[in-house]
Write a protein that binds this DNA or RNA. Structure first.
Lengths: 245, 245
DNA sequence: CGGCAACTTGACAATGCTCAACGCGGGTGG
DNA sequence: CCACCCGCGTTGAGCATTGTCAAGTTGCCG
Protein backbone atom coordinates (compact mmCIF):
# COMPACT_ATOMS: atom_id res chain seq x y z
CA UNK A 1 0.00 0.00 0.00
CA UNK A 2 1.66 3.22 -1.15
CA UNK A 3 0.23 6.40 0.39
CA UNK A 4 -3.26 5.82 1.83
CA UNK A 5 -3.83 9.53 2.04
CA UNK A 6 -3.44 9.94 -1.70
CA UNK A 7 -5.66 6.95 -2.30
CA UNK A 8 -8.33 8.44 -0.10
CA UNK A 9 -8.27 11.90 -1.63
CA UNK A 10 -8.22 10.48 -5.14
CA UNK A 11 -11.46 8.63 -4.43
CA UNK A 12 -13.15 11.86 -5.34
CA UNK A 13 -11.03 12.88 -8.32
CA UNK A 14 -7.48 12.80 -9.62
CA UNK A 15 -4.80 14.91 -7.95
CA UNK A 16 -2.08 16.90 -9.74
CA UNK A 17 1.41 15.47 -9.37
CA UNK A 18 2.49 18.48 -7.33
CA UNK A 19 -0.26 17.78 -4.81
CA UNK A 20 0.74 14.16 -4.60
CA UNK A 21 4.32 15.16 -3.95
CA UNK A 22 3.19 17.41 -1.13
CA UNK A 23 1.09 14.63 0.35
CA UNK A 24 4.01 12.23 0.13
CA UNK A 25 6.11 14.72 1.99
CA UNK A 26 3.43 15.01 4.65
CA UNK A 27 3.16 11.25 4.89
CA UNK A 28 6.86 10.98 5.60
CA UNK A 29 6.39 12.86 8.87
CA UNK A 30 4.29 10.02 10.33
CA UNK A 31 5.34 8.75 13.73
CA UNK A 32 4.55 5.53 15.53
CA UNK A 33 1.98 5.68 18.32
CA UNK A 34 1.30 2.77 20.65
CA UNK A 35 -2.04 1.05 20.82
CA UNK A 36 -4.63 2.46 23.24
CA UNK A 37 -3.16 5.94 23.35
CA UNK A 38 -5.21 9.13 23.33
CA UNK A 39 -4.37 11.51 20.51
CA UNK A 40 -6.82 14.24 21.49
CA UNK A 41 -9.26 14.77 24.34
CA UNK A 42 -12.80 16.07 24.40
CA UNK A 43 -12.96 19.64 25.66
CA UNK A 44 -9.37 20.47 24.72
CA UNK A 45 -8.50 23.41 22.54
CA UNK A 46 -7.19 21.78 19.37
CA UNK A 47 -3.64 22.61 18.33
CA UNK A 48 -2.85 19.87 15.83
CA UNK A 49 -4.75 17.80 13.32
CA UNK A 50 -4.16 14.06 13.32
CA UNK A 51 -4.10 11.74 10.39
CA UNK A 52 -3.87 7.95 10.50
CA UNK A 53 -1.38 6.50 8.02
CA UNK A 54 -1.37 2.96 9.34
CA UNK A 55 -3.29 1.08 12.01
CA UNK A 56 -6.68 1.36 13.58
CA UNK A 57 -7.97 4.29 15.67
CA UNK A 58 -11.32 5.64 16.85
CA UNK A 59 -13.29 8.68 17.87
CA UNK A 60 -15.20 8.35 21.12
CA UNK A 61 -17.32 10.36 23.53
CA UNK A 62 -17.59 9.89 27.30
CA UNK A 63 -20.94 9.36 29.01
CA UNK A 64 -21.92 10.65 32.42
CA UNK A 65 -21.98 7.18 33.98
CA UNK A 66 -18.29 6.69 33.27
CA UNK A 67 -18.70 4.58 30.17
CA UNK A 68 -17.95 5.78 26.67
CA UNK A 69 -19.30 5.37 23.18
CA UNK A 70 -17.28 4.88 20.01
CA UNK A 71 -18.59 7.10 17.22
CA UNK A 72 -16.16 6.30 14.39
CA UNK A 73 -13.35 4.02 13.35
CA UNK A 74 -10.36 5.63 11.69
CA UNK A 75 -8.35 3.66 9.14
CA UNK A 76 -5.30 4.56 7.06
CA UNK A 77 -5.95 7.77 5.14
CA UNK A 78 -8.61 9.02 7.56
CA UNK A 79 -8.44 12.39 9.28
CA UNK A 80 -9.15 12.19 12.99
CA UNK A 81 -10.17 15.77 13.61
CA UNK A 82 -10.26 17.62 10.34
CA UNK A 83 -12.62 20.15 11.84
CA UNK A 84 -10.47 20.88 14.87
CA UNK A 85 -9.26 24.31 13.82
CA UNK A 86 -12.80 25.46 13.26
CA UNK A 87 -13.83 24.79 16.83
CA UNK A 88 -12.91 26.22 20.18
CA UNK A 89 -13.15 22.90 21.95
CA UNK A 90 -13.22 19.39 20.62
CA UNK A 91 -16.58 17.66 21.05
CA UNK A 92 -15.04 14.20 21.16
CA UNK A 93 -11.80 12.35 21.89
CA UNK A 94 -9.53 10.38 19.56
CA UNK A 95 -7.49 7.31 20.49
CA UNK A 96 -5.45 4.63 18.77
CA UNK A 97 -6.68 1.07 19.05
CA UNK A 98 -3.78 -0.80 17.47
CA UNK A 99 -0.21 0.32 16.95
CA UNK A 100 -0.49 3.19 14.46
CA UNK A 101 1.52 5.47 12.28
CA UNK A 102 0.11 8.97 12.73
CA UNK A 103 0.83 12.34 11.13
CA UNK A 104 0.42 15.49 13.20
CA UNK A 105 -0.36 18.51 11.07
CA UNK A 106 0.30 21.99 12.35
CA UNK A 107 -2.10 24.69 11.38
CA UNK A 108 0.23 26.21 8.80
CA UNK A 109 0.92 22.83 7.26
CA UNK A 110 -2.80 22.14 7.11
CA UNK A 111 -3.48 25.47 5.41
CA UNK A 112 -0.82 24.63 2.89
CA UNK A 113 -2.90 21.60 1.99
CA UNK A 114 -6.23 23.39 1.85
CA UNK A 115 -4.80 25.94 -0.56
CA UNK A 116 -4.69 23.21 -3.19
CA UNK A 117 -8.18 23.08 -4.71
CA UNK A 118 -8.04 19.38 -5.56
CA UNK A 119 -7.02 18.52 -2.04
CA UNK A 120 -9.65 20.77 -0.53
CA UNK A 121 -12.29 19.01 -2.59
CA UNK A 122 -11.01 15.67 -1.40
CA UNK A 123 -11.25 16.83 2.19
CA UNK A 124 -14.81 17.99 1.65
CA UNK A 125 -15.58 14.63 0.15
CA UNK A 126 -14.08 12.80 3.06
CA UNK A 127 -16.14 14.86 5.50
CA UNK A 128 -19.29 13.95 3.63
CA UNK A 129 -18.47 10.27 3.68
CA UNK A 130 -17.94 10.51 7.44
CA UNK A 131 -21.32 12.14 7.76
CA UNK A 132 -22.98 9.45 5.68
CA UNK A 133 -21.37 6.80 7.82
CA UNK A 134 -22.68 8.45 10.96
CA UNK A 135 -26.19 8.44 9.53
CA UNK A 136 -25.91 4.77 8.75
CA UNK A 137 -24.63 3.99 12.23
CA UNK A 138 -27.53 5.91 13.69
CA UNK A 139 -29.98 3.79 11.75
CA UNK A 140 -28.07 0.66 12.63
CA UNK A 141 -28.13 1.31 16.36
CA UNK A 142 -31.54 2.92 16.48
CA UNK A 143 -33.42 0.52 14.29
CA UNK A 144 -31.91 -2.93 14.22
CA UNK A 145 -31.65 -5.82 16.68
CA UNK A 146 -28.34 -6.89 18.17
CA UNK A 147 -27.34 -9.53 15.62
CA UNK A 148 -27.91 -7.17 12.72
CA UNK A 149 -26.03 -4.35 14.41
CA UNK A 150 -22.93 -6.41 14.93
CA UNK A 151 -23.07 -8.05 11.51
CA UNK A 152 -23.49 -4.65 9.91
CA UNK A 153 -20.44 -3.29 11.66
CA UNK A 154 -18.38 -6.28 10.59
CA UNK A 155 -19.52 -5.89 6.99
CA UNK A 156 -18.57 -2.23 7.00
CA UNK A 157 -15.17 -2.96 8.45
CA UNK A 158 -14.51 -5.61 5.83
CA UNK A 159 -15.40 -3.21 3.03
CA UNK A 160 -13.35 -0.35 4.40
CA UNK A 161 -10.34 -2.48 5.25
CA UNK A 162 -10.41 -3.92 1.76
CA UNK A 163 -10.03 -0.47 0.24
CA UNK A 164 -6.85 0.06 2.28
CA UNK A 165 -5.49 -3.42 1.69
CA UNK A 166 -5.74 -4.61 5.27
CA UNK A 167 -7.64 -7.83 4.54
CA UNK A 168 -6.61 -11.36 3.65
CA UNK A 169 -9.44 -12.96 1.75
CA UNK A 170 -12.49 -12.15 3.84
CA UNK A 171 -10.48 -11.94 7.04
CA UNK A 172 -8.73 -9.17 8.94
CA UNK A 173 -7.14 -8.21 12.24
CA UNK A 174 -9.75 -6.78 14.61
CA UNK A 175 -7.95 -4.89 17.38
CA UNK A 176 -11.16 -4.56 19.41
CA UNK A 177 -12.38 -6.28 22.53
CA UNK A 178 -15.97 -7.44 22.66
CA UNK A 179 -16.58 -4.58 25.07
CA UNK A 180 -15.33 -2.19 22.38
CA UNK A 181 -17.78 -3.66 19.92
CA UNK A 182 -20.49 -3.13 22.49
CA UNK A 183 -19.44 0.49 23.00
CA UNK A 184 -19.82 0.94 19.26
CA UNK A 185 -23.22 -0.59 18.65
CA UNK A 186 -24.79 0.15 22.02
CA UNK A 187 -24.82 -3.31 23.59
CA UNK A 188 -23.33 -4.80 26.74
CA UNK A 189 -20.17 -6.85 26.42
CA UNK A 190 -22.07 -9.92 27.62
CA UNK A 191 -24.66 -9.59 24.93
CA UNK A 192 -22.05 -8.97 22.27
CA UNK A 193 -20.46 -12.20 23.34
CA UNK A 194 -23.67 -14.17 22.98
CA UNK A 195 -24.33 -12.75 19.54
CA UNK A 196 -20.83 -13.64 18.42
CA UNK A 197 -21.33 -17.19 19.67
CA UNK A 198 -24.46 -17.28 17.58
CA UNK A 199 -22.73 -15.94 14.47
CA UNK A 200 -20.08 -18.59 14.95
CA UNK A 201 -22.68 -21.32 15.39
CA UNK A 202 -24.35 -20.19 12.16
CA UNK A 203 -20.95 -20.50 10.46
CA UNK A 204 -21.02 -16.86 9.42
CA UNK A 205 -17.78 -15.83 11.07
CA UNK A 206 -14.70 -17.05 12.88
CA UNK A 207 -13.17 -14.93 15.63
CA UNK A 208 -10.17 -16.12 17.57
CA UNK A 209 -7.77 -13.86 19.35
CA UNK A 210 -7.76 -10.76 17.22
CA UNK A 211 -8.38 -12.63 14.01
CA UNK A 212 -11.73 -12.28 12.30
CA UNK A 213 -12.78 -14.23 9.22
CA UNK A 214 -16.08 -13.78 7.47
CA UNK A 215 -17.00 -17.24 6.28
CA UNK A 216 -20.08 -16.42 4.25
CA UNK A 217 -20.08 -12.85 3.13
CA UNK A 218 -23.36 -13.03 1.22
CA UNK A 219 -25.30 -14.42 4.13
CA UNK A 220 -23.74 -12.02 6.61
CA UNK A 221 -24.55 -9.03 4.42
CA UNK A 222 -28.09 -10.29 3.95
CA UNK A 223 -28.51 -10.72 7.69
CA UNK A 224 -27.19 -7.20 8.28
CA UNK A 225 -29.22 -5.57 5.50
CA UNK A 226 -25.87 -4.21 4.40
CA UNK A 227 -25.78 -1.82 1.44
CA UNK A 228 -22.43 -0.02 1.17
CA UNK A 229 -23.88 2.85 -0.84
CA UNK A 230 -23.45 5.14 2.14
CA UNK A 231 -19.66 4.77 1.93
CA UNK A 232 -19.77 6.32 -1.57
CA UNK A 233 -16.86 4.23 -2.73
CA UNK A 234 -17.39 4.95 -6.41
CA UNK A 235 -16.25 8.50 -5.90
CA UNK A 236 -18.13 11.63 -6.86
CA UNK A 237 -19.93 11.35 -10.11
CA UNK A 238 -21.08 14.93 -10.29
CA UNK A 239 -18.61 17.78 -10.53
CA UNK A 240 -18.79 19.25 -7.08
CA UNK A 241 -17.74 22.46 -5.45
CA UNK A 242 -15.31 24.65 -7.34
CA UNK A 243 -13.28 26.76 -4.96
CA UNK A 244 -11.39 29.53 -6.74
CA UNK A 245 -9.07 27.54 -9.01
CA UNK B 1 -36.44 36.89 12.13
CA UNK B 2 -34.68 38.47 9.15
CA UNK B 3 -32.72 36.01 6.99
CA UNK B 4 -32.02 32.78 8.88
CA UNK B 5 -29.46 31.79 6.28
CA UNK B 6 -27.33 34.82 7.02
CA UNK B 7 -27.71 34.26 10.73
CA UNK B 8 -26.55 30.69 10.34
CA UNK B 9 -23.54 31.47 8.20
CA UNK B 10 -22.51 34.35 10.43
CA UNK B 11 -22.35 32.00 13.40
CA UNK B 12 -18.87 31.22 12.17
CA UNK B 13 -17.72 34.69 11.24
CA UNK B 14 -18.94 37.96 9.75
CA UNK B 15 -19.97 38.11 6.10
CA UNK B 16 -19.16 40.93 3.67
CA UNK B 17 -22.17 43.03 2.70
CA UNK B 18 -21.96 41.81 -0.87
CA UNK B 19 -22.32 38.23 0.35
CA UNK B 20 -25.28 39.15 2.48
CA UNK B 21 -26.93 40.80 -0.50
CA UNK B 22 -26.45 37.65 -2.53
CA UNK B 23 -27.92 35.53 0.27
CA UNK B 24 -30.90 37.85 0.53
CA UNK B 25 -31.46 37.46 -3.16
CA UNK B 26 -31.32 33.69 -2.79
CA UNK B 27 -33.71 33.80 0.16
CA UNK B 28 -36.25 35.65 -1.94
CA UNK B 29 -36.63 32.62 -4.20
CA UNK B 30 -38.09 30.54 -1.38
CA UNK B 31 -41.35 28.75 -2.13
CA UNK B 32 -43.98 27.30 0.15
CA UNK B 33 -44.05 23.53 0.52
CA UNK B 34 -46.81 21.69 2.33
CA UNK B 35 -46.22 19.66 5.44
CA UNK B 36 -45.24 16.00 4.99
CA UNK B 37 -43.87 16.40 1.48
CA UNK B 38 -40.71 14.72 0.21
CA UNK B 39 -38.11 17.11 -1.14
CA UNK B 40 -35.57 14.48 -2.17
CA UNK B 41 -35.51 10.69 -2.18
CA UNK B 42 -32.81 8.24 -1.21
CA UNK B 43 -31.15 6.73 -4.27
CA UNK B 44 -32.03 9.62 -6.58
CA UNK B 45 -29.41 11.47 -8.57
CA UNK B 46 -29.40 14.92 -7.00
CA UNK B 47 -30.21 17.86 -9.25
CA UNK B 48 -30.99 20.62 -6.75
CA UNK B 49 -29.91 21.57 -3.28
CA UNK B 50 -32.61 22.41 -0.75
CA UNK B 51 -32.51 24.96 1.96
CA UNK B 52 -35.11 25.50 4.68
CA UNK B 53 -36.02 29.15 5.22
CA UNK B 54 -39.01 28.60 7.46
CA UNK B 55 -40.64 25.59 9.07
CA UNK B 56 -39.51 22.20 10.21
CA UNK B 57 -38.10 19.43 7.98
CA UNK B 58 -36.09 16.24 8.43
CA UNK B 59 -33.64 13.83 6.87
CA UNK B 60 -34.62 10.18 7.08
CA UNK B 61 -33.54 6.76 5.94
CA UNK B 62 -35.76 3.78 5.17
CA UNK B 63 -35.25 0.42 6.85
CA UNK B 64 -35.78 -2.96 5.26
CA UNK B 65 -38.82 -3.76 7.40
CA UNK B 66 -40.73 -0.81 5.97
CA UNK B 67 -40.14 1.54 8.85
CA UNK B 68 -37.84 4.53 8.69
CA UNK B 69 -35.45 6.39 10.92
CA UNK B 70 -35.10 10.16 11.25
CA UNK B 71 -31.43 11.18 11.23
CA UNK B 72 -31.69 14.97 11.42
CA UNK B 73 -34.09 17.83 11.95
CA UNK B 74 -33.77 20.78 9.63
CA UNK B 75 -34.69 24.25 10.88
CA UNK B 76 -34.62 27.65 9.19
CA UNK B 77 -31.15 28.31 7.75
CA UNK B 78 -30.26 24.61 7.48
CA UNK B 79 -29.16 23.00 4.25
CA UNK B 80 -30.95 19.73 3.54
CA UNK B 81 -28.46 18.16 1.18
CA UNK B 82 -25.43 20.38 0.92
CA UNK B 83 -23.36 17.42 -0.21
CA UNK B 84 -25.73 16.38 -2.97
CA UNK B 85 -23.62 17.54 -5.90
CA UNK B 86 -20.66 15.58 -4.64
CA UNK B 87 -22.51 12.27 -4.74
CA UNK B 88 -23.95 10.14 -7.46
CA UNK B 89 -26.90 9.05 -5.40
CA UNK B 90 -28.39 10.44 -2.23
CA UNK B 91 -27.92 8.21 0.79
CA UNK B 92 -31.01 9.54 2.54
CA UNK B 93 -34.34 11.26 1.89
CA UNK B 94 -35.53 14.72 2.92
CA UNK B 95 -39.09 15.69 3.81
CA UNK B 96 -40.96 18.62 5.30
CA UNK B 97 -42.73 18.07 8.60
CA UNK B 98 -44.62 21.34 8.92
CA UNK B 99 -45.53 23.85 6.26
CA UNK B 100 -42.18 25.21 5.07
CA UNK B 101 -40.58 27.86 2.96
CA UNK B 102 -37.85 26.19 0.94
CA UNK B 103 -35.20 27.43 -1.48
CA UNK B 104 -34.12 25.21 -4.35
CA UNK B 105 -30.59 25.96 -5.49
CA UNK B 106 -29.43 24.96 -8.93
CA UNK B 107 -25.88 23.85 -9.34
CA UNK B 108 -24.73 27.10 -10.90
CA UNK B 109 -26.38 29.14 -8.19
CA UNK B 110 -24.76 26.98 -5.58
CA UNK B 111 -21.35 27.41 -7.14
CA UNK B 112 -21.89 31.14 -7.14
CA UNK B 113 -22.22 30.88 -3.37
CA UNK B 114 -19.21 28.67 -2.84
CA UNK B 115 -17.03 31.08 -4.77
CA UNK B 116 -17.38 33.50 -1.88
CA UNK B 117 -14.74 32.49 0.66
CA UNK B 118 -16.69 33.69 3.68
CA UNK B 119 -19.75 31.75 2.59
CA UNK B 120 -17.72 28.65 1.83
CA UNK B 121 -16.29 28.78 5.32
CA UNK B 122 -19.75 29.11 6.76
CA UNK B 123 -20.87 26.06 4.82
CA UNK B 124 -17.91 24.09 6.11
CA UNK B 125 -18.82 25.16 9.57
CA UNK B 126 -22.40 24.13 9.15
CA UNK B 127 -21.34 20.70 7.91
CA UNK B 128 -19.19 20.24 10.97
CA UNK B 129 -22.00 21.19 13.29
CA UNK B 130 -24.20 18.63 11.55
CA UNK B 131 -21.52 16.04 12.07
CA UNK B 132 -21.19 16.92 15.74
CA UNK B 133 -24.93 16.62 16.15
CA UNK B 134 -24.91 13.19 14.56
CA UNK B 135 -22.24 12.05 16.98
CA UNK B 136 -24.29 13.30 19.90
CA UNK B 137 -27.39 11.54 18.60
CA UNK B 138 -25.41 8.35 18.25
CA UNK B 139 -24.37 8.55 21.89
CA UNK B 140 -27.88 9.47 22.91
CA UNK B 141 -29.48 6.50 21.19
CA UNK B 142 -26.69 4.04 21.82
CA UNK B 143 -25.99 4.83 25.42
CA UNK B 144 -28.97 6.28 27.23
CA UNK B 145 -32.32 4.92 28.47
CA UNK B 146 -35.61 6.03 26.96
CA UNK B 147 -36.42 8.94 29.28
CA UNK B 148 -33.01 10.50 28.77
CA UNK B 149 -33.18 10.03 25.01
CA UNK B 150 -36.44 11.86 24.67
CA UNK B 151 -35.51 14.57 27.13
CA UNK B 152 -32.24 15.11 25.33
CA UNK B 153 -33.99 15.54 22.01
CA UNK B 154 -36.42 18.04 23.52
CA UNK B 155 -33.56 20.01 25.06
CA UNK B 156 -31.75 20.14 21.74
CA UNK B 157 -34.86 21.29 19.93
CA UNK B 158 -35.45 24.03 22.45
CA UNK B 159 -31.89 25.30 22.06
CA UNK B 160 -31.93 25.20 18.30
CA UNK B 161 -35.38 26.72 17.97
CA UNK B 162 -34.32 29.53 20.27
CA UNK B 163 -31.51 30.49 17.93
CA UNK B 164 -34.00 30.89 15.10
CA UNK B 165 -36.61 32.63 17.19
CA UNK B 166 -39.22 29.89 17.03
CA UNK B 167 -39.84 29.65 20.77
CA UNK B 168 -42.14 31.42 23.18
CA UNK B 169 -40.59 31.28 26.61
CA UNK B 170 -39.60 27.66 26.98
CA UNK B 171 -42.31 26.48 24.64
CA UNK B 172 -42.56 25.78 20.93
CA UNK B 173 -44.62 24.15 18.23
CA UNK B 174 -43.63 20.51 17.78
CA UNK B 175 -44.92 19.28 14.40
CA UNK B 176 -44.09 15.66 15.25
CA UNK B 177 -46.24 12.73 16.17
CA UNK B 178 -45.12 10.51 19.00
CA UNK B 179 -44.30 7.94 16.35
CA UNK B 180 -41.95 10.48 14.75
CA UNK B 181 -40.22 10.98 18.06
CA UNK B 182 -39.84 7.24 18.29
CA UNK B 183 -38.38 7.05 14.79
CA UNK B 184 -35.82 9.62 15.90
CA UNK B 185 -34.62 8.12 19.15
CA UNK B 186 -35.18 4.46 18.32
CA UNK B 187 -38.25 3.68 20.44
CA UNK B 188 -41.75 2.42 19.68
CA UNK B 189 -44.60 4.92 19.63
CA UNK B 190 -46.17 3.19 22.60
CA UNK B 191 -43.07 3.53 24.68
CA UNK B 192 -42.62 7.15 23.68
CA UNK B 193 -46.13 7.75 24.90
CA UNK B 194 -45.45 6.22 28.28
CA UNK B 195 -42.28 8.24 28.74
CA UNK B 196 -44.11 11.43 27.86
CA UNK B 197 -46.77 10.61 30.43
CA UNK B 198 -43.99 10.24 32.93
CA UNK B 199 -42.36 13.55 31.99
CA UNK B 200 -45.75 15.18 32.39
CA UNK B 201 -46.30 13.53 35.76
CA UNK B 202 -42.90 14.80 36.89
CA UNK B 203 -43.98 18.29 35.81
CA UNK B 204 -41.07 18.59 33.44
CA UNK B 205 -43.08 19.26 30.29
CA UNK B 206 -46.52 19.97 28.91
CA UNK B 207 -47.54 18.58 25.53
CA UNK B 208 -50.98 19.14 24.13
CA UNK B 209 -51.83 19.07 20.48
CA UNK B 210 -48.67 20.27 18.81
CA UNK B 211 -47.73 22.55 21.66
CA UNK B 212 -44.77 21.70 23.84
CA UNK B 213 -43.72 23.64 26.93
CA UNK B 214 -40.69 22.81 29.00
CA UNK B 215 -41.74 23.57 32.55
CA UNK B 216 -38.44 23.07 34.31
CA UNK B 217 -35.53 23.45 31.96
CA UNK B 218 -32.83 22.86 34.56
CA UNK B 219 -34.27 19.59 35.72
CA UNK B 220 -34.96 18.38 32.20
CA UNK B 221 -31.41 19.18 31.10
CA UNK B 222 -30.04 17.45 34.17
CA UNK B 223 -32.15 14.38 33.48
CA UNK B 224 -30.97 14.33 29.86
CA UNK B 225 -27.29 14.96 30.68
CA UNK B 226 -27.63 17.73 28.16
CA UNK B 227 -24.53 19.76 27.29
CA UNK B 228 -25.02 21.87 24.16
CA UNK B 229 -21.29 22.13 23.47
CA UNK B 230 -21.72 19.84 20.47
CA UNK B 231 -23.85 22.45 18.73
CA UNK B 232 -20.90 24.86 18.79
CA UNK B 233 -23.16 27.83 19.15
CA UNK B 234 -20.38 30.20 20.16
CA UNK B 235 -18.98 30.09 16.65
CA UNK B 236 -15.46 29.21 15.62
CA UNK B 237 -12.84 30.53 17.93
CA UNK B 238 -9.83 29.57 15.87
CA UNK B 239 -9.25 30.99 12.44
CA UNK B 240 -10.14 28.07 10.22
CA UNK B 241 -9.54 27.10 6.65
CA UNK B 242 -8.43 29.81 4.26
CA UNK B 243 -9.55 29.00 0.75
CA UNK B 244 -7.82 31.16 -1.84
CA UNK B 245 -9.02 34.65 -0.88
C1' DC C 1 4.29 -20.07 37.49
C1' DG C 2 1.35 -16.15 38.61
C1' DG C 3 -1.53 -12.60 37.30
C1' DC C 4 -4.46 -10.01 34.68
C1' DA C 5 -7.44 -9.01 31.01
C1' DA C 6 -10.60 -10.79 28.02
C1' DC C 7 -13.93 -14.16 27.10
C1' DT C 8 -17.72 -17.34 28.53
C1' DT C 9 -21.74 -19.04 30.92
C1' DG C 10 -25.85 -19.03 33.91
C1' DA C 11 -29.63 -17.02 36.46
C1' DC C 12 -32.42 -13.28 37.05
C1' DA C 13 -34.18 -8.52 36.43
C1' DA C 14 -35.49 -4.71 33.68
C1' DT C 15 -36.38 -2.24 29.80
C1' DG C 16 -38.86 -1.79 25.89
C1' DC C 17 -41.85 -4.17 22.14
C1' DT C 18 -46.11 -6.15 20.20
C1' DC C 19 -50.76 -6.72 19.96
C1' DA C 20 -55.12 -5.23 20.88
C1' DA C 21 -58.65 -2.26 22.28
C1' DC C 22 -60.62 2.15 23.01
C1' DG C 23 -61.11 7.42 23.22
C1' DC C 24 -60.78 11.70 21.16
C1' DG C 25 -60.98 15.13 17.61
C1' DG C 26 -60.90 17.11 13.21
C1' DG C 27 -62.34 16.62 8.59
C1' DT C 28 -65.52 14.96 5.01
C1' DG C 29 -69.53 13.50 2.70
C1' DG C 30 -74.37 12.73 2.91
C1' DC D 1 -76.04 19.50 10.73
C1' DC D 2 -75.01 15.07 11.67
C1' DA D 3 -72.63 10.65 11.01
C1' DC D 4 -68.80 8.53 9.94
C1' DC D 5 -63.95 7.79 9.50
C1' DC D 6 -59.29 7.98 10.18
C1' DG D 7 -55.15 9.34 12.42
C1' DC D 8 -53.32 10.00 16.70
C1' DG D 9 -52.97 9.32 21.55
C1' DT D 10 -53.75 6.26 25.52
C1' DT D 11 -53.95 2.06 28.24
C1' DG D 12 -53.38 -2.85 29.49
C1' DA D 13 -51.37 -7.49 29.27
C1' DG D 14 -47.97 -10.53 27.98
C1' DC D 15 -43.65 -11.31 25.77
C1' DA D 16 -38.92 -10.66 23.82
C1' DT D 17 -34.68 -8.69 23.99
C1' DT D 18 -31.09 -7.05 26.41
C1' DG D 19 -28.80 -5.71 30.86
C1' DT D 20 -26.74 -6.88 35.35
C1' DC D 21 -24.39 -9.63 38.52
C1' DA D 22 -21.59 -13.18 39.58
C1' DA D 23 -18.70 -16.93 38.88
C1' DG D 24 -15.67 -19.47 36.14
C1' DT D 25 -12.33 -20.27 32.19
C1' DT D 26 -8.93 -19.24 28.90
C1' DG D 27 -4.82 -17.37 27.23
C1' DC D 28 -1.18 -14.37 27.04
C1' DC D 29 2.75 -11.97 29.15
C1' DG D 30 6.08 -11.25 32.48
Amino acid sequence: MPNPLIRKLEAFGPLPDADKALLDEVARTAKEVEARTDLALEGEAPYKIHLVMDGFACRYKALANGSHHIVAYLLPGDFCDLHAFLQKRLDHSVATLSLCRVVELSRSRFEELTERPAILKGLWWSTLVDEGTLREWLVNIGGRPADQRISHLLCELLTRLETVGMTVGHGFQLPLTQADLGATVGLSNVHVNRIIQQLRADELITLKGRNLVILDRRRLEALAEYDPNYLHLEGGGAAGVQPRA
